[in-house]
């Protein structure tokens, strides 16, 4: 099969225009953080939920807020607190005394973009309710099942430094996030710009520059991005190297990894690589796309052993080793 790369490229050029508009609108508010913005777009384009992790004050929430402002769609911010209940999130049945019937009161999850702020502050039952909805893209209230709106994107944030009063997400549930992004500090130049922008009185107006239809069209083009068999094999090799490191000459990782990445990692790695290629205005995936997105896809899918913890080896170290070892096609 010879894909028509030229045609795909043309489609990409046509359908990817909005990505630049979104980036420009976000940059009106957010200084730097281009890496995070690019990953958010990848999530948006490949219909994958994103977990943002970083210390407070790195504009995680602001970025997601701004992103949602650029899309003509419904946005809900849910502040996760210890007393939050699943019904507060999903909705509930309310008895109408007048009619003598139960009516459904839909929760804030019935929106297009959900900002689950500080997701690890709520207990497991709430997290579970959200994560189930994320996976199934439907919610059952009473006897009725409701399909969630499309696009449906959950952008969750969590703070890695505070452990008191938090409920860390179980590994199986974290796995449902397509990307886990570690948000880093801005550079000194960026920080100077942040000071200048935030200490002035003028308010910046962020415009909605894209519709859900545009996003759906772009998503369809992303699906068309060509992935060669060699790239598919490369993705599988990377994922397998986390499960059976010794087969890839990574015997030293054997003791460090308890559980390797799941098949969901392969799926998301392929999808994210396609979205990355789309953002590069390229109709085919190269190993570069896989490598550049690999860390964010695999970071939360590998469970390390106590030995790794004792040796202060993190998942990022392991992934780096894997990416540097698995032969690029």
């Amino acid at each position: 099969m010879n894909p028509d790369i030229k045609a795909i490229n043309e489609k990409i050029i046509k359908e990817s225009e909005f990505t630049e508009k979104i980036t420009n609108e976000i940059s009106k508010v957010i200084v730097g953080q281009s890496y995070m913005v690019e990953r958010l777009l990848i999530g948006l384009l490949s219909n994958g939920h994103i977990l943002l992790e970083g210390v407070p004050g790195l504009a995680k929430t602001l970025t997601v807020n701004t992103l949602s402002s650029t899309i003509k769609t419904k946005f809900q911010r849910i502040q996760f607190t210890p007393d939050l209940l699943p019904a507060d999130l999903l909705g509930t049945l309310i008895f109408n005394q007048k009619d003598g019937e139960f009516t459904t009161k839909k929760g804030p999850i019935f929106s297009n973009i959900i900002l689950a702020d500080e997701i690890n502050r709520s207990p497991a039952k709430v997290q579970s309710a959200l994560l189930e909805a994320m996976q199934e893209r439907q919610v059952t209230i009473g006897e009725n099942t409701f399909k969630l709106e499309d696009p449906f994107l959950v952008l969750a944030t969590q703070n890695p430094i505070e452990q008191e009063g938090t409920y860390p997400l179980p590994e199986a549930q974290v796995d449902r996030f397509m990307l886990k992004i570690n948000v880093g500090y801005p550079s000194p130049e960026e920080e100077l710009e942040i000071i200048r922008r935030t200490t002035k009185s003028n308010e910046v107006q962020v415009n909605a520059v894209v519709t859900p239809q545009d996003i759906n069209k772009a998503r369809n083009v992303v699906k068309e991005v060509y992935v060669d068999e060699k790239i598919e094999k490369y993705i599988v090799d990377i994922v397998f190297a986390t499960r059976e490191p010794e087969k890839y000459g990574l015997e030293d990782l054997n003791e460090l990894i308890n559980y390797g990445a799941s098949p969901r990692a392969s799926i998301y790695l392929t999808l994210a690589a396609k979205a990355h290629a789309f953002l590069q205005r390229r109709g085919y995936v190269t190993p570069e796309d896989v490598r550049s997105i690999g860390m964010d896809v695999l970071r939360h899918r590998i469970i390390l052993s106590y030995e790794a913890e004792a040796e202060e080896i993190g998942t990022e170290d392991v992934i780096r080793k894997v990416l540097n070892r698995v032969e690029v096609p």
């Binding site: 010879n2 894909p3 790369i5 085919y284």
Partner: peptide
């Protein structure tokens, strides 16, 4: 080479 190897070019 990349175009041929990864973009399905003949």
């Amino acid at each position: 080479s990349d175009l041929i190897r990864f973009a399905g070019n003949t």
